[in-house]
């Protein structure tokens, strides 16, 4: 995927996303005019989402932090070349995904995982309920074990399949948005998602109905 490749499609999947894109465009113009502080607003807005994407692709929180910063620095350095042919959001995600791909390819032989802790307040109620029903084993232990299995299963997917699952199922992006970020067609996104979920179903079978 080449981040310098012109993007002809732009997505504003929802009205909220459209408003968000408009607000971003104003901030980008300010940064391009020399207002460095405007970039801080963009960082504040996107740092958590960007970190989450990278963290879920790498399953390593230190790498994710480093790559998120790298993505912002690259975006900052290249922002004068951003012509608004795509939304800033998609452009930034493309930079982040590219940086992550490069990192994972560079370090594919020495990978290790480090996970963030699960915030039980944010965990799906159904999952917590299912884990609570298990007698005599503490829930946090079950939760940790499930987290490990889930991350292991994700890491068995190829990078392109993992990217689609992360962006769709975890980050709740649309097929069209993912297509733009990954530089492939919507059909390809759908087919990758279908295949990836089949793989995950097999890996996580003991946890599924």
């Amino acid at each position: 995927m080449d981040i310098s490749r012109p993007v002809t499609r732009t997505f504003t999947a929802t009205p909220e996303r459209g408003q968000e894109a408009d607000a971003d465009a104003i901030l980008v113009q300010q940064v391009q005019a020399g207002d460095v502080a405007a970039f801080d607003s963009l960082i504040l807005k996107y740092r958590q989402r960007l970190y989450s994407v990278i963290y879920n692709l790498t399953s390593n929180r230190e790498d994710a932090a480093d790559l998120t910063q790298e993505a912002f620095i690259k975006a900052f350095q290249s922002i004068n070349r951003f012509k608004g042919r795509s939304t800033f959001f998609a452009w930034l995600y493309r930079i982040a995904v590219n940086a992550t791909y490069s990192h994972l390819r560079r370090h594919k032989l020495r990978r290790f995982f480090s996970f963030d802790t699960i915030d039980e307040d944010l965990a799906p109620a159904e999952v917590l309920e299912a884990l609570t029903s298990k007698s005599n084993i503490p829930r946090d232990r079950l939760l940790t074990e499930l987290q490990e299995k889930l991350n292991e299963a994700l890491q068995t997917l190829s990078l392109k399949h993992r990217t689609v699952v992360v962006l769709f199922e975890i980050e709740s992006l649309s097929h069209q948005e993912i297509a733009e970020i990954t530089g492939c067609s919507v059909g390809t996104v759908r087919s990758r998602l279908h295949y990836a979920k089949q793989q995950l179903q097999g890996k996580l079978q003991p946890y599924l109905s």
């Binding site: 963030d116 802790t117 915030d119 499930l146 975890i170 109905s209």
Partner: peptide
Amino acid sequence: LTLEQLLQLKRSEQP
């Protein structure tokens, strides 16, 4: 659980 519910657990992993 469904696969989607399991994957949503990933959203609760926070620094």
